[in-house]
Design a protein around this nucleic acid. Structure first.
Lengths: 196, 196
DNA sequence: CGTGGCATGTAAACGGTTACATGATTTA
DNA sequence: TAAATCATGTAACCGTTTACATGCCACG
């Protein structure tokens, strides 16, 4: 039943702003929902073709020949309806896969410095993410005050910001905990046995 | 270069407690790291065979015939080393894909009640998750006080708890925001046009 | 003895990324 | 016109899930 989610990303982006090419869509995804969703060209272009075949989108501007530059698309009424239908369906939580937490969970197999290093790296990435999202937030506040999508965009942003802040707080105390343990507990990692 | 992550989950679980079967490993994953990692049998069993071929694990108990019941495995020294090597490698953050946020981002395409419903559903799932994790936490505190893995397990748990709490807080205020908007703004969702 | 659940395993399909190929446009 | 970059597209591969097949064991 459930179709490719990439299709709905495309429909959604075109519903916000018509006349977008595959390239445009990719860019828009990256710069708006990039912190919780990713798409690759290898997924976008075939899906654009499929959606066209199904009549959910239409090529809107220059159709000059194969490999033309900047082929743009817009939603049809059917496409619009399809998007709304999907929106009303219950969301699935995508299977959780957090390699950072996985390594931390098995952390006792290695010296504490390994886990400490991972947490420091996580902190850096989160600080960077936080800065990006705050920038996006203030940008959205300055521009487009009356954009009807804005309330929803701000909601997604504020969740991202809240989660990242919580993670940063956690990281601080986790580093404190592990540094302390590192000082006390040196025999922890079970080192290679010296067998013949 | 990078091999299947399932392999490391298996190595990690066997490093914590040897003599586990594929079934055991699946159960252990579900009940310990289930809130940030998932594995399916279709992934575990082939990987067990491959790891055996590569000498990273060994079948430890009854080898009676094909399809024997409860074939168990343990780590070899090579397997142990392989696990530690992987632990020290930088973690990759898995591509973010949050369908809830995606639907919320496009939320203005539908009536506010749709987004409100999704957020309510999210709140319920998160409350359930929080309860599970808090239970796990108190269990870990009661039992296994001197388990050497415990500090690391508690760290992963506390991050999960912190993130879930942050999400719940966000959900409350998001519901308030949207309910308010729902009252004021009824013309928002562009409804189906009445064309012949 | 037979039924239901436990445990193992496999094949096929799927969603997605990666790497590559290619044309078209800008810029120097 | 040469080089760089923009934009489109495709084929191969990969990890994972799903559905199914199959025996084994416990329990009525």
């Amino acid at each position: 039943m459930s179709r490719n989610r990439t299709a709905y990303v495309i429909l959604g982006m075109l519903s916000i702003e018509p006349n977008k090419s595959g390239y445009d869509i990719r860019k828009a995804v990256e710069s708006s929902v990039g912190y919780f969703w990713g798409e690759s060209y290898g997924q976008i272009y075939p899906t654009l073709k499929r959606l066209t075949d199904e009549g959910l989108i239409v090529p809107s501007s220059p159709i000059t020949g194969p490999r033309q530059r900047r082929q743009q698309y817009s939603l049809t009424d059917a496409g619009h309806a399809c998007l709304r239908e999907w929106l009303a369906l219950p969301f699935q939580n995508d299977p959780p896969r957090n390699e950072f937490l996985l390594k931390l969970f098995f952390g006792r197999e290695a010296p504490p410095s390994v886990s400490i290093g991972h947490i420091r790296e996580l902190q850096q990435r989160n600080q960077h993410m936080l800065a990006t999202m705050l920038e996006l937030e203030s940008f959205a506040n300055r521009v487009g005050a009356q954009n009807p999508h804005k309330p929803y965009w701000m909601l997604t942003l504020s969740l991202g910001i809240a989660l990242t802040r919580a993670a940063l707080d956690w990281g601080e105390s986790a580093l404190a905990t592990l540094s302390q343990a590192d000082g006390e507990d040196h025999s922890n990692p079970p080192t290679e046995k010296h067998l013949a």
